[in-house]
Design a protein around this nucleic acid. Structure first.
Length: 536
RNA sequence: GCCCUCAUCGUCUAGCGGUUUAGGACGCUGCCCUCUCAAGGCAGAGAUCACGGGUUCGAAUCCCGUUGGGGGCACCA
């Protein structure tokens, strides 16, 4: 699709009025995939023309999220050198290694950008919008409007009452020079409205949705320049898409009905149209557009919850796009190679956290223990990282590897292996340790393990098996009490590898604790002594 | 209210007029493996392709309508 004379140039244009959310990330991803697939340019443009809701924090947050996801942009704000955002991880996780703070954003006021089509913050491009606006007024395709918001509101209500479309009534559309002069001398504030053709239609072909048709009649004379001199979305968007030589506009289909307005502006200015591709929305579990009430919606929240950026990308790609063979797991390169706008789906998709989580586990299982340890570091406390030797950490992770779905699982799944403080759960204690004969067997196991040399998974297993055989009981009758005694729970890693990991001293100590516990009348809340750190 | 848009298992999707007893994935159930939990393997339940009309020898696939969902109708983007 790209050629030297007409290269693919796409943009992701978020407004900094909040963190980057799942829907925005999906739009960014599809633009990025399209650009990379076509060896084109991916631009990040900040649409900060909302004077009341735009915030610097949002800009930083968006840049951070984009960086974390690995959606690198060829043109747009620079991310080096200034105020890193300290939103991650949450304070409860303790200090984080510097390496984890990835995104370093800057704010629009002093923004440094890269690319030859900048600046990439719209508030720094006001002169360009003004110039195009002047051009429209001069050619009679736009006009100053002196109506107040209250007056416009009244017009709409009136129109609604008489069952006409609630449109601006065109009061200022055909003002004479004198009338205009009078409004000016009255000191009325001036906005600029686009003179929407009274008849005709706008037709275009959407790369995803196909042929589109809109009647111009239904559109009102919309504002393109606010009284503040700041452009509205539809106007700024068109001017920038033209000036930045955007070839394809890929965005959510909530913008579909904005497209005719934008096309009208393009035509009034005599500019060539980009191609359009509108993506179906992402819905929450109740079918409504994904929002906060559906749970986590910001990219940062998923980062904090222990999801991998590549997983989020992979999962998001599946929401609205698919291959002929229904492939589920993609490397980034595979996504780039296979991505086609033509294969984007037109129906809205529901966001399914369960599948996302499955995919995260799938990715994590394919990683080496060392990689998982590195990735999980931010989720351990600084103290844990300081006290626990790296090899120890990796061994513990290896024991639980296939069970890890989220990076936040790593500390949870390994705590009883790495620390002396852990809970003896009531149910297993009652069911397994208090079972008939269990105490006796535990005592015997302890005796034999005390003398055991060398103390390995194999020798411990043999010890248990031999004991079972001598007693004429099933192997399980020795395994289960030992498991609960050393871990406080019935589920966990391979018993003998776990025992080998703990080592003889710790194993014996834990068995003693379990025995002490059994001597207490109610075992429900055994509290071991204060933490002594890691032993063994 | 008006405009736009969508409609295949609970969910994400494959399917582009006959190869379909509608395929894959998540989730769910069962079995196997097994020292538990997972992971893995196998099997299964689950979709009259929203509904109603056409077109056609033949429709999930094309057309029309209905219903339902989503989006939009701002000096917000």
């Amino acid at each position: 699709m790209s050629s030297p004379t007409n290269p693919v140039r796409v943009r992701f244009a978020p407004s900094p009025t909040g963190f980057l959310h799942i829907g925005g990330a999906r739009t960014a991803l599809f633009n990025w995939l399209f650009a990379r697939h076509n060896k084109g340019i991916f631009i990040l443009r900040i649409e900060d023309t909302d004077e009341v809701r735009s915030t610097e924090d949002s800009v930083r947050g968006i840049l951070d999220s984009m960086s974390w996801l690995g959606l690198d942009w060829d043109e747009g704000p620079l991310t080096e050198g200034l105020n890193p955002v300290q939103m991650f991880p949450p304070k409860t996780l303790g200090e984080i290694p510097p390496a984890v703070v990835m995104g370093k954003a800057i704010i629009s006021g002093t923004a440094a950008t890269k690319g030859d089509f900048g600046p990439y913050f719209q508030m720094q491009r006001l002169d360009k919008y003004q110039a195009s606006c002047d051009q429209l007024i001069q050619s009679g395709k736009a006009y100053p409007c002196y109506c107040t918001p209250e007056e416009v509101q009244k017009m709409r209500e009136l129109a609604e009452l008489s069952k006409r479309p609630p449109k601006y009534d065109g009061t200022c559309r055909n003002l004479t020079a004198e009338q205009r002069q009078q409004k000016e001398t009255e000191g009325r504030k001036k906005s600029v409205r686009f003179k929407t053709p009274m008849e005709g239609s706008v037709n275009f072909t959407d790369l995803v949705n196909g042929a589109m048709h809109f009647e111009t009649l239904l559109l009102e004379d919309f504002v393109i320049l606010k009284t503040s001199g700041v452009p509205t979305y539809n106007f700024a968007c068109v001017v920038d898409d033209h000036l930045m030589e955007i070839s394809h506009v890929i965005r959510g289909d909530d913008h579909l009905s904005n497209t005719p307005r934008q096309i009208l502006i393009f035509e009034a200015l005599g500019w060539a149209l980009p191609q359009y591709a509108h993506l179906a929305m992402i819905k929450g579990s109740d079918g409504a557009r994904l929002s906060k009430r559906h749970g986590a919606t910001s990219v940062m929240e998923y980062r904090e919850a222990g999801y991998l950026p590549d997983v989020l990308l992979n999962y998001l790609a599946l929401l609205g796009w698919g291959t002929e063979d229904s492939q589920q797991i993609f490397t980034k390169q595979e996504m780039i190679d296979k991505f086609l706008l033509e294969r984007c789906v037109t129906s809205p998709a529901m966001f399914d956290p369960a599948k996302l989580t499955w995919m995260n586990g799938e990715y994590l299982r394919k990683k080496t223990v060392s990689e998982v340890a590195d990735l999980a570091k931010p989720f351990f406390t600084a103290k844990a990282l300081d006290v626990i030797p790296r090899t120890r950490l990796e061994q513990a992770i290896a024991l639980e590897h296939e069970k890890i779905k989220l990076l936040t699982d790593v500390p949870k799944l390994t705590d009883f292996l790495l620390w002396d403080v852990f809970e003896y759960r009531e149910e297993p204690v009652n069911k397994v340790l208090r079972a008939a004969g269990a105490a006796e067997i535990l005592k015997e196991i302890k005796q034999r393990l005390t003398a055991l040399e060398p103390f390995t998974a194999e020798t411990v297993e043999k010890t248990c098996k031999d004991l079972a055989k001598e007693r004429g009981v099933k192997n399980g009758a020795t395994y289960h009490p030992l498991r609960v005694a050393v871990s406080g729970r019935t589920e966990g890693p391979s018993l003998f590898h776990m025992v080998e990991f703990l080592g003889k001293a710790l194993t014996l100590q834990r068995i003693e604790r379990a025995q002490a516990l059994l001597n207490q009348p109610s075992a429900s809340s055994f509290q071991p002594p204060a933490p002594e750190g890691l032993k063994g």
